[in-house]
Amino acid sequence: MTTSSSDHGVSLGMPELPAPDYPDGVRARLELDAREIIARYPDSRSALLPMLHLVQSEEGHVTRTGMQFCADVLELTTAEVAAVATFYTMYRRRPSGDYQVGVCTNTLCAVMGGDAIYSALQEHLGVGNGETTGDGKVTLEHIECNAACDYAPVVMVNWEFFDNQTPESAKRLVDDLRAGRQADPTRGAPLCTFKETARILAGFPDEREGAVDATGGAGPASLTGLRLAKGEKPAARVVHPRDGGPHDEPRSGTAANADVHLSSHDAPQDTSASDPSHPAGPAAEEGQ
Rank of each mutant, 00 (worst) to 15 (best):
Y118C: 13
S119M: 14
S119R: 14
A120R: 05
A120T: 05
A120Q: 07
A120I: 04
L121Y: 05
Q122L: 12
Q122N: 12
Q122H: 10
E123I: 10
E123M: 11
H124T: 03
L125H: 03
L125D: 02
G126A: 02
G126Y: 06
V127E: 07
V127S: 09
V127L: 08
V127K: 07
G128C: 04
N129M: 11
G130T: 14
G130S: 12
E131Q: 14
E131I: 05
E131N: 06
E131D: 11
T132Y: 05
T132E: 09
T133S: 01
T133F: 02
G134H: 05
G134N: 08
G134E: 13
G134M: 06
D135L: 00
D135K: 00
G136T: 02
G136S: 01
G136P: 06
K137R: 07
K137H: 05
T139R: 08
T139F: 06
H142Y: 14
H142P: 08
H142M: 15
I143H: 08
C145K: 06
A147Q: 13
A147N: 14
C149T: 06
C149H: 07
C149L: 06
Y151M: 11
Y151A: 12
A152Y: 04
P153G: 03
P153N: 00
V154S: 11
V154G: 05
V155C: 04
M156H: 09
M156F: 09
M156T: 15
M156L: 13
N158F: 10
N158C: 12
W159C: 13
W159Q: 15
W159G: 12
W159E: 15
E160N: 15
E160V: 13
F161I: 15
F161K: 11
F161T: 10
F162Q: 06
D163V: 11
Q165P: 11
T166N: 03
T166L: 02
T166W: 04
T166Y: 03
P167T: 00
E168A: 09
S169L: 01
S169Q: 03
R172V: 06
L173M: 14
L173P: 12
L173E: 07
V174S: 05
D175S: 12
D176P: 03
D176W: 02
D176H: 08
D176S: 10
D176C: 09
L177T: 04
L177R: 08
A179P: 01
A179H: 01
A179C: 03
G180C: 01
G180H: 00
G180L: 01
R181G: 00
R181D: 02
Q182W: 00
Q182S: 04
Q182T: 06
Q182M: 04
A183V: 02
D184Q: 09
D184M: 04
D184A: 03
P185L: 03
P185G: 03
P185Y: 02
T186M: 02
T186K: 02
R187W: 04
R187E: 06
A189H: 11
A189R: 15
A189Q: 13
A189M: 14
P190M: 08
L191G: 04
C192P: 13
T193V: 07
